[in-house]
Design a protein around this nucleic acid. Structure first.
Lengths: 224, 224
DNA sequence: TAGATTGTTAATCGATTAACAATC
DNA sequence: TAGATTGTTAATCGATTAACAATC
């Protein structure tokens, strides 16, 4: 039962790392592995790995001999939704937009990149990751027509709120905001903000404070 | 007393958002504001804002009338270390490397971008964010000579581990890994891994599960 | 003084870890 | 059977929220 409505976000965020570790093992011909091995390759404790699987409802482990990797992979993929796909668009075809589009080119986790938009006429018509760049003025219509629920904002901070307003009005459910501003949207719209600069800043703090001095949970933090 | 060794990471990660909100208010000529206003603009509760300030040791609040924004800004900046600067380099001059370099161009939070490296001879010699691109073969020497402690890895997944090995051997203390692989480094080296694709995946899960169904803490998640 | 707002404490909540009984 | 390893429970830990006494 893929009751994903109950799975903690912290657990969900580790699943992709588990999948990567399993994929790597499978591609080396390994068919079975204990939790300790998969966990180590994923950068977590075996306790946490098993706990996460338990929360996710996956159960392809056999006491005494570990996990059937193929079966486990299929279960995790199902949770992460390889099945039903969700369409999204990227607004902003600068370097960040490019990088994001590339990161989605091998269609991971049920996401379909449907369109890329930019305000610069010079970029309109070019192709990124096999997708034609359209002008911002077509954004609202495109969202409405294609039932796009996710809009990734990779614009300058100054246009981010405008784009958000258009997207929300056209029916977007979720915004992923890479511009360094706090977006204001109706409560029914989910916003996740990511600031590349902030992440670097955090790392600098670690370096300054000396290793281990900060109350950091793990040395291999994952997710954004 | 900037005892940053005791401040929880979760608190530190919110400070940049506070700074941005304060900057915005100051630039509009506001000199004083209550916690509720700054918090709202930062996307957190006023409780959390005050608690964070308390943990940070900042104290420019006056009961009954709020905070002196300039003083508060200075205190937060000090915690985030505008004072002593830390040098870092970016390896990989693709779109992601470009985007990262741009996000650091206005020298936030005590970080100095000292160099950009790429394995492609064609890119060597060009300039990004005012910095000349060097060849990967010079990385080890550069790290050693300039006392670089932070290395940002924005290469392809296949070369990430190689770059990590070189960086660690040359004396890097911290790696910020944007390639989708788990890096293996000595325990004394801090690694933070960020996967742009994973973040999009998480958002897709939110959309699929229906708003609010996931046990997400806040609708304006921040940091990476 | 009366109103407003802080700084901090205590209560709640959630996430991680450790331990172990179940069992292949 | 004996050894290994899971799945889950209970204990720990940390982070968030709510409430309020202190006080400007």
């Amino acid at each position: 039962m893929p009751n994903s409505g109950q799975i903690p976000l912290s657990t969900l965020e580790r699943l992709p790392a588990y999948l990567r570790a399993i994929d790597a093992l499978v591609s080396h011909g390994v068919e079975h592995a204990p939790s300790a091995l998969i966990a180590q390759r994923s950068g977590v404790s075996s306790s946490q790995f098993r706990k996460d699987l338990s929360l996710v409802g996956a159960s392809s482990g056999v006491r005494g001999s570990g996990y059937d990797l193929e079966a486990l992979r299929d279960q995790l993929r199902e949770v992460l939704g390889s099945a039903d796909r969700v369409g999204f668009v990227i607004v902003g075809a600068g370097h960040l937009g490019h990088a994001l589009a590339a990161s989605m080119s091998f269609r991971r986790g049920g996401l379909d990149l449907l369109g890329i938009f930019d305000i610069d006429e010079a970029k309109v018509g070019s192709e990124i990751a096999g997708i034609e760049v359209r002008h911002d003025s077509q954004l609202a219509t495109f969202i409405a027509n294609h039932g796009v629920s996710i809009v990734v904002i990779a614009t300058s901070p100054s246009s981010a709120q405008d784009v958000a307003d258009v997207a929300v009005k056209a029916g977007a459910q979720e915004l992923l905001n890479f511009a360094s501003v706090v977006l204001h949207v109706p409560p029914c719209v989910e916003v996740r903000s990511i600031d590349l600069g902030v992440e670097l800043q955090m790392l600098a703090l670690h370096a300054r404070a000396g290793l281990g001095a900060l109350s950091s949970q793990s040395s291999q933090a994952s997710g954004m």
